[in-house]
Design a protein around this nucleic acid. Structure first.
Ligand code: MN
Ligand code: MN
Ligand code: MN
Ligand code: MN
Lengths: 156, 156
DNA sequence: TATATATGTTAGCATAGGCTAACTTTTGAG
DNA sequence: CTCAAAAGTTAGCCTATGCTAACATATATA
């Protein structure tokens, strides 16, 4: 090994954990993106069922800001994944598994929004930012957020 | 119009802003996803140039946790977008525009990490979560984060 | 009840961003 | 200086998630 190579190796050793940890971080983000569609859909479906009694593709499309064919396609993916049940041309229901996921997502969404509001951020921005942030918040961080919200409420 | 239809319309009017705002929120998230690859790449390229003097595809691939052909493809997209300049088989450089974006991303990344750390979250988790969160934080929220970090530092 | 409107689906297309296998070019050890 | 190993590229594949145009079904008004 030449000096140059030794130098490179040492640098590599020193930052190896760093590089590996960084790669794991990016991998975590990519995984989060994979579940994001499912999470947003089941969360929204649960909301619509609560507000309107049923979740129709047209309403899902309106609230997501996508076109109906996109919803049809994604709903069949969710059905494939066992998160929703439905028959053609009929409203959409959540399976028990879907309901469980929806509940977890709604909780997480609520906490993130409440946390941002507790920092003094306006509702519009809080909702906007939360819609993306929610998918990248670990349980650890979520609990920290929750603690801040709780303390803010105590001080009211 | 029947009562049912009137009822639907009223409900729609009442929650129209809501639905529209929600759709805008999701649209914002989709836009963030479109810039995410570019942001992560230029940020990483800037880091590598700082640490190693150059940014090579093999190192970018290692730190992102993807394979070299993926990097080749994405780098050519960034070149297309005017963010990097490079010649085949040679190291990658940032254009002035790329440098500007990289600086903004590094600042944002630092603030998000510092903010999470200030909540008592461990470094590993803070870095992991920040890697995703950073792309969904508005300037408003970023400033709120910054304020919290500053206050935490003052209290030391 | 008939039919117009609203809703939903299908087919086919596009882009982004992953991958492997095979090939090319550069680099550096001897 | 040579040539093997390291690095980089290309081609071709895949999945996810958008879209439009055309068609099918359901719903509600007349
Ligand atoms: Mn979301
Ligand atoms: Mn949400
Ligand atoms: Mn990132
Ligand atoms: Mn980052």
């Amino acid at each position: 090994m030449t000096k140059l190579q030794i130098h490179r190796r040492e640098a590599s050793d020193a930052s190896d954990r760093d590089a590996k940890a960084q790669a794991e971080g990016f991998a975590t983000v990519r995984q989060a993106h994979e579940s994001e569609m499912a999470e947003d859909y089941v969360e929204l479906i649960a909301e619509l069922i609560e507000i309107q009694g049923e979740a129709r593709p047209v309403d899902i499309a309106e609230r997501l800001g996508v076109k109906p064919p996109t919803v049809t396609k994604n709903i069949s993916r969710l059905k494939e994944a066992g998160l929703v049940s439905r028959e053609r041309y009929r409203a959409i229901f959540l399976t028990p598994e879907g309901q469980k996921l929806a509940e977890a997502c709604r909780r997480r969404h609520r906490i993130v929004v409440a946390f941002l509001l507790s920092l003094g951020i306006d509702e519009e921005t809080a909702e906007r930012d939360a819609e993306g942030i929610e998918h990248h918040v670990s349980e650890t961080t979520l609990e920290a957020f929750e603690a801040v919200v709780t303390r803010a409420h105590e001080k009211h």
